[in-house]
Design a binder for these strands. Structure first.
Length: 289
DNA sequence: CACTTGACCTGTCCGC
DNA sequence: TGCGGACAGGTCAAGT
């Protein structure tokens, strides 16, 4: 489900609902989302005060005094904050969890954080004794476009190293930029009028500049709308995001382009669907800035 | 090294 | 109603 705007929306929700609370227990299943065993988690996270909720790209982190818990939602992961009293699900650590619910974190004041994931592409991992920036835990990730690490000269410099790559594939490569996924990559390319199959080396200067500014602007706009609910995504209170109304090309195959009326087309690149308008985003590029 | 493909999972939808 | 295939917002390992 979630790309940067959805993860950021969840992060803000968790800050609001969990900040400063102490975690005193957990229930976990044996699923493959766990990179750290439940026994280790249980030991590390008994009586732990939540200090901060942080994010880099699509990676979400719960910071405690004795370490950092990584939560990655993969394709279908959900994080839901519930109140114990109204939750009908297991109330004790040793009760078994319903299908697709993999982790429950019990906080004080009857607050419970639940991690659900049907497709099991998500990930839960404990980094003991981690006290530095969360970014250091994943050095192979590229800069987060909403962080101070995202800088114009560096962006152009790194684009140069991937001249033979199709721009769509590069935009969703998390080692190039952390945060864009299939939806927002397609939307960025529509807004910059760049055909997804074009090679990075063939982009013109105004197109590279357009990408640099459009990427963070689009992400911010999506965050303001609470992210995109397409199929599975919901925020930490179970609510939907409204950015789906703003999508110009993603999942609009065959529907008229909102700018020129030409039917939106779909094409597979690097195994992923790409949606674009063949008139607004010609393969050979546009000639105006 | 740069880049592509397939695997990992489950669920839904669509055509027959 | 059932069955097969295509498709799904992400990452990772293995292939060319």
């Amino acid at each position: 489900m979630p790309e940067l705007p959805e993860v950021e929306t969840i992060r803000r929700g968790l800050v609001k609902e969990l900040a400063g609370l102490t975690l005193f227990g957990l229930a976990a299943d044996e699923s493959r989302v766990f990179r750290t065993s439940a026994a280790v988690l249980r030991t590390a996270l008994s009586r732990a005060e939540l200090l901060a909720v942080e994010r880099h790209g699509k990676y979400l982190f719960l910071r405690f005094r004795n370490g950092i818990l990584l939560l990655h939602l993969g394709m279908t992961g959900r994080l839901l904050v519930r109140n114990q009293e109204i939750s009908h699900e297991p109330k004790k650590e040793d009760d078994s969890l319903p299908r697709h619910l993999h982790l429950r974190l019990f906080f004080e004041d009857d607050v419970v954080l639940e991690f659900w994931d049907t497709r099991l592409f998500g990930r839960v991992e404990w980094f003991p004794q981690a006290t530095g920036p969360v970014r250091d835990l994943f050095p192979h990730l590229g800069p987060d476009p909403l962080s101070g690490e995202y800088r114009e000269a560096d962006f152009y410099e790194r684009l140069k190293r991937h001249g033979g790559t199709r721009i769509k594939s590069l935009l969703i490569d998390q080692s190039f930029l952390a945060g864009l996924g299939n939806i927002y990559a397609d939307e960025v390319l529509f807004r910059t009028r760049i055909h997804p199959a074009r090679r990075v080396g063939g982009l013109r200067r105004f197109e590279r500049a357009g990408l640099f500014t459009t990427i963070p602007n689009l992400l911010q706009e999506a965050i303001r709308k609470g992210g995109t609910t397409w199929r599975d995504y919901v925020n930490s209170t179970g609510g939907r995001g409204n950015f789906a109304d703003e999508l110009q090309v993603y999942a609009r195959t065959g529907m008229p382009c909102r700018i020129c009326g030409e039917p939106v087309r779909r094409l597979v690149l690097g195994g992923r669907s790409s949606h674009f308008c063949p008139r607004c985003q010609p393969r050979q590029g546009t000639f105006t800035s």
